[in-house]
């Protein structure tokens, strides 16, 4: 127990604010390190001491169950003291809370801040005000880097590679930070990325991000190796972006029939939480081709890798 990790990968930057700007080597380095933590997490003794003495604060301006608990577990398994702070943004004016909270928390000398915020760019703004490392746990519709990394790890473990795979990202790309981070990462690793969805849910000029744009699931899923479904927020279902849940499911919900357009060994992913019967059918979500539960497992390992790789770059004195 307490063996040091074999990979000595260091992320030579203070913050992880997005996938944008990460090199292929850095992405691979993080994934390799995460592999070790996958093994560790399957043992009874899961504890490491590499972050002992470090303080990690999870600062969530937007509620989250999955990402926050994943980061909490990751920090604790590496030996850090982890504190969760949920900021009720309705009571105070949002922006003031952000900067004020950053300055207040910074005075408590956290080594690592894990931050989620509903506004694009907010995590970067906060990072300018603190001394420790900041990890973006999702900012608006901008980036969610650890989600893209865990998706990449899941793909790599199941397909043995990322390069050359056809990945179809389907649904509400417009509002999705998961889609943006995944597009950047998958392109950096040499995958062929498509986005599929109704035009109301595709961002303007999204093709400039290096993806093929398709409006039809049959065409979009043709020969795909990976089908990545995105969550459709409830408030966007009824008339504002799509006419109804029923119509959306009929054309863009992933069921067995549509999945059959993809390669026979295609795998299905979803960042969660799922709307069963809206963007994905239960038989697919729980079926043999689904990687959804494995994604959650990979999430803890990837976040451990990010925490570890960033902390190796923190000053020790």
């Amino acid at each position: 127990m307490n063996n040091a990790a074999t990979s000595s990968f260091v992320l030579n930057r203070r913050h992880l604010l997005g996938i944008e700007g990460l090199s292929r080597e850095e992405i691979s380095g993080l994934l390799d390190l995460a592999e070790e933590f996958v093994e560790l997490n399957r043992q009874i003794e899961k504890k490491r001491t590499s972050l002992r003495g470090r303080t990690q604060i999870n600062l969530f301006f937007e509620s989250s169950t999955r990402t926050q608990s994943s980061f909490e577990l990751a920090g604790k398994r590496l030996g850090a003291d982890v504190m969760n702070m949920a900021v009720n943004s309705s009571s105070i004016k949002k922006g003031e809370t952000l900067i004020d909270t950053a300055i207040t928390l910074n005075a408590m000398h956290p080594d690592i801040l894990v931050v989620r915020h509903h506004a694009s760019g907010a995590v970067e703004l906060l990072a300018q005000k603190v001394d420790g490392s900041v990890i973006n746990a999702g900012d608006g519709a901008h980036e969610h880097p650890t989600q893209a990394l865990l998706d990449a790890l899941t793909i790599r473990r199941n397909k043995g590679r990322i390069e050359g795979l056809i990945v179809a990202i389907c649904g509400d790309v417009l509002h999705s930070r998961v889609a943006r981070s995944n597009i950047i990462l998958l392109n950096a690793m040499g995958a062929n990325v498509r986005v599929v969805g109704p035009s109301t849910l595709l961002p303007p000029n999204v093709e400039r991000l290096g993806v093929k744009v398709m409006r039809d699931m049959r065409e979009g899923l043709q020969d795909a190796d990976i089908v990545m479904m995105l969550r459709l927020q409830r408030e966007r279902m009824n008339g504002s972006f799509v006419p109804s849940t029923q119509e959306y499911f009929a054309y863009f919900g992933l069921d067995q029939r549509k999945l059959a357009y993809a390669k026979s060994d295609a795998l299905v992913m979803h960042p969660g939480p799922m709307n069963r019967g809206v963007e994905i059918d239960s038989t697919v979500a729980d079926g043999a081709q689904s990687l959804i539960r494995e994604q959650v497992e990979m999430g803890v390992a990837v976040r451990m890798a990010v925490l570890e790789a960033l902390s190796r770059n923190l000053p020790n004195a």
């Binding site: 944008e20 694009s120 760019g121 900012d139 608006g140 519709a141 901008h142 980036e143 930070r177 943006r180 961002p203 303007p204 000029n205 999204v206 400039r208 991000l209």
Partner: peptide, 15 residues
């Protein structure tokens, strides 16, 4: 402004 830049930044665009 609506376009590639707004899309990259995850900001809503104005056409």
């Amino acid at each position: 402004n609506e376009g590639e830049l707004a899309t990259r930044l995850g900001l809503h665009g104005i056409p």
